[in-house]
Design a binder for these strands. Structure first.
Lengths: 110, 110
DNA sequence: AGTTCATGTTAGCCATTACTTACCGTAACC
DNA sequence: GGTTACGGTAAGTAATGGCTAACATGAACT
């Protein structure tokens, strides 16, 4: 499912996120991905399955190899969800500045 | 730790994400947050602790209550990390379009 | 001081999960 | 056909994590 929940869940694990980052850099077969990681090849295969179900990567057979690449639509919902709170974060930042200014005024005993 | 790893890990859990969304909407004490959720108050308190250590929320005492609000700096690293792969996703999308066009035309390659 | 309200903390339980080893299927070689 | 390369799947295990219940802390109020 390519919703934001599964995407967030998939990217939470450091190893799986490393797999995703590797695939995002450039498409690669499973073996190559596993070579650059401290886990076994089946582990990478399992991570790729999760990433695929989360809509973050795509795969296609190429002979005996299976090439994984980033799924363009995967990061969309996640980014949209994040931006939803970007405004709230900025508002909070503005409120912080205001409160800080008030504090400075209160604390101006020499 | 206010890095992107802990932020991603904190937001992965649906309940904890609901807590974060509630806090982001408007600052509130723990009891009020727990009222709108299907888990106990201690559970909310634990989630808030994780969110706080991830740099996603801030708290300040207000009498016996403890008001939690969003931490403006929390989403920054996460958003930055996400944008790092936004370009790769767009590139992949462009590659998809190109491949599709090639398929449609059944043309030989560039 | 004693009581009540609001919250943090601990202990323990249960479900989930990330990992490895072993195995099976498939595709390209000889 | 046999063998080798590549990758997905199953089973079993150790570790993690979220939850509740019980306890501890501290502030406000009478």
């Amino acid at each position: 499912m390519a919703n934001m929940n599964s995407a967030l869940l998939a990217l939470a694990d450091p190893t799986r996120r490393a797999v995703f980052e590797r695939v995002a850099r450039s498409p690669a077969p499973v073996g190559d991905i596993a070579k650059g990681l401290p886990v076994s090849r089946p582990a990478v295969s399992q991570h790729l399955k999760v990433l695929k179900e989360a809509g973050l990567v795509l795969d296609h057979a190429e002979g005996a190899r299976r090439i994984y690449r980033i799924d363009p639509r995967g990061l969309g919902p996640l980014r949209a969800w994040l931006d939803q709170f970007w405004g709230a974060a900025l508002d909070a930042f503005a409120a912080d500045l205001e409160a800080q200014a008030k504090d400075d005024k209160d604390d101006d005993h020499d």
